[in-house]
Design a protein around this nucleic acid. Structure first.
Lengths: 132, 132
DNA sequence: ATAAGAATTGAGAATGGTTATCGTTTTGGA
DNA sequence: TCCAAAACGATAACCATTCTCAATTCTTAT
């Protein structure tokens, strides 16, 4: 019954850093978070392993905000709220579908495209930034 | 009755390059498009003027795809289909709202955030790439 | 245990999109 | 015309990300 992943110590730490919160960190944020406990960690290693996670389907990109790509360990369909001031990202509408996916068929018939997924982002000012 | 913008020749050309199609070009695509007719155009000027357009509200960002920011002259609410192979961007659902904006209020009450806008992107393979 | 080969890593160089700098040119009033 | 502001080209700087490569660490068969 060996389902445990066979990750290297650093890969495991990077994966934990991403999955241990819902902050949707950038590569650099993962790096800064781990630096204290793993002083000999290289930023390149963080990027390299995030690429691995993406290929494995364990992690996906939320998008590029403020110049940095942000990552999400929750690959199920949900939306995000992005603060345009501090660029914090919050999960929204977990479990509920905000759009009727019959729109996929409409787009396919109108444009001849093959629609595979969609993303919905909300933008505004988060509570913290608003309370300043 | 002087509503004509007072754009410099190059600013006007850059604006025309963006508004004359629905391709949602990147800065570099604008530059390459104009280069033949304006040989002494600088890429920096393209970036500079797009920033001006953004500040004026004439143009907004569609997002960063394949490492390049893409721009849209149509600032009304609509969605986009992005081909994950060639990164072409197509307008979708012009005129129709795909989500119930009452969700704005729900997000605001649940997270204390101030929601100002949203974007919906569809991803897949466009007709051209599919027909290859 | 051990050796060979594969996978992983750190350090730093390279890349590429975007922004900033600066000296020059152009523009638009007074 | 004259002057200040705006816009420009060229290029350097910036910064997130990717790549390179030699060194290190795992795997696994023997």
């Amino acid at each position: 019954m060996q389902t445990k992943r066979n990750f290297s110590a650093k890969r495991e730490a990077i994966y934990q850093a991403i999955t241990s919160s819902n902050k949707h960190p950038s590569a650099d944020q993962v790096y800064e978070k781990l630096k204290p406990e793993i002083p000999d960690l290289s930023l390149g290693t963080v990027y390299r392993n995030i690429s691995v996670f993406k290929e494995m389907g364990l992690v996906k990109s939320v998008g590029v905000f403020n110049g940095q790509e942000r990552y999400d360990w929750d690959t199920s369909q949900h939306s995000h709220f992005i603060c345009t001031k501090c660029f914090s990202i919050t999960d929204v509408s977990k479990g509920q579908s905000l759009i009727d996916e019959s729109i996929y068929g409409l787009i396919e018939s109108e444009y001849g495209a093959c629609v595979q997924s969609h993303s919905i982002n909300f933008y505004g000012i988060c509570r913290k930034c608003r309370d300043v």
